[in-house]
């Protein structure tokens, strides 16, 4: 009997939603597990890091890694998986672009520690203790992973073969990706295993989009009763669909929420935020500076909005030295 290919599934800085998305394959997961050996999946099965360390180099056919990297443990595990794997798939928005936690890169590590361990109203820390990578207790040395200065996407730390974005990736694309690996029908290295065009291309509201969108007043989704069929931008509600890769199945659009951009930039675009800003500027219907200012003042956190999932890989972020 030919040995089944080995697959590792791992979470780094992650909420668990991506692992849940794998479970959401439902019955299809049985087909997957009959075709492969899952040799590592911390969230679901009791494997330890030393099980991974015992493997030969390249023994794992595919590592599916979700989550960003912000501490030394995450970096260590990512590097270990890379060493043992023939292919690495960055799975989900955090692994592909840094994800929502990547927005922490607008703050320094110091700011974050001060808030979390000193200034937040719920904190009682009279001794001013901060977590340390190494500390002494009862004559023993205790260690914690080191918290890095910033959040990294997976490809800023290890070599990544394929990308599957989404928060989380939808079941059909996961099944396609796994099948492509099993059947050896993979696109060139570095490809994103999702459609190339923008979400608007498949959005069913596209029919209601006027030739020229002109926004006179920016509205937020919770402030209005949004029409369930009309293009959000035509209603003056910001939607990232114009600058975001499609393939998600429009799960947000279908429940009357505008796109937030979890699939990242469309094919060939490096910075979806910059593209969105340029497009948005063209849509804002202001006659003069004053009207423009009034419109812009309504945007509370434009940077957070445009880089909700992609800040660590954006143009202006420092790359790892």
């Amino acid at each position: 009997m030919v040995a089944k290919p080995k697959v590792a599934i791992c979470w780094l800085g992650s909420c668990g939603g991506c692992d849940e998305a794998v479970v959401d394959l439902n019955e299809a997961i049985l087909q997957v597990t009959s075709a492969v050996d899952v040799i590592f999946w911390p969230v679901a099965l009791d494997f330890k890091y030393h099980h991974l360390e015992a493997l030969e180099k390249g023994e794992v056919a595919l590592s599916i890694i979700n989550g960003h990297i912000r501490n030394s443990e995450q970096e260590e595990v990512a590097k270990l998986l890379r060493e043992k794997s023939q292919l690495v798939l960055a799975f989900g928005a955090c692994a592909c672009f840094g994800g929502t936690p990547g927005m922490a890169n607008f703050r320094s590590k110091e700011d974050i520690f001060n808030w979390v361990y000193r200034d937040a109203p719920t904190v009682v820390n009279p001794k001013g203790n901060y977590p340390q990578p190494r500390s002494q207790a009862n004559g023993k040395e205790l260690t914690l992973p080191e918290f890095y200065e910033q959040v990294f996407a997976l490809n800023q730390v290890i070599d990544v073969d394929y990308y599957l974005p989404g928060c989380p990736p939808p079941p059909d694309l996961i099944a396609n990706a796994v099948n492509a690996v099993l059947e050896g029908k993979l696109p060139p290295k570095g490809s994103t295993l999702a459609p190339h065009k923008a979400l608007c291309d498949t959005c069913k509201r596209n029919e209601t989009k006027p030739d020229k969108i002109s926004i006179k007043d920016i509205k937020r989704i919770h402030e209005v009763e949004a029409s369930p069929d009309t293009c959000f931008l035509a209603q003056g509600i910001l939607c990232m669909g114009i600058a975001t890769r499609g393939g998600c199945g429009e799960s947000c659009i279908n429940i009357n929420m505008p796109c937030r951009g979890c699939f990242g930039p469309v094919e060939g675009v490096e910075d979806s935020g910059a593209k969105f800003i340029s497009a948005l500027a063209a849509m804002l219907d202001a006659e003069n500076d004053e009207e423009m200012k009034q419109l812009i003042d309504k945007l509370d956190d434009l940077a957070g909005y445009t880089y909700r999932f992609t800040l660590p890989v954006s143009l202006l972020q420092r790359k790892r030295a």
């Binding site: 800003i277 063209a282 434009l302 202006l316």
Partner: peptide, 19 residues
């Protein structure tokens, strides 16, 4: 004027980057 609008929007984003 289109670029002027773009710059005004961009000011807001760049500010978050500390620019």
């Amino acid at each position: 004027f289109e670029t002027k609008k773009r710059v005004q929007l961009l000011h807001k984003v760049l500010d978050s980057y500390g620019i």
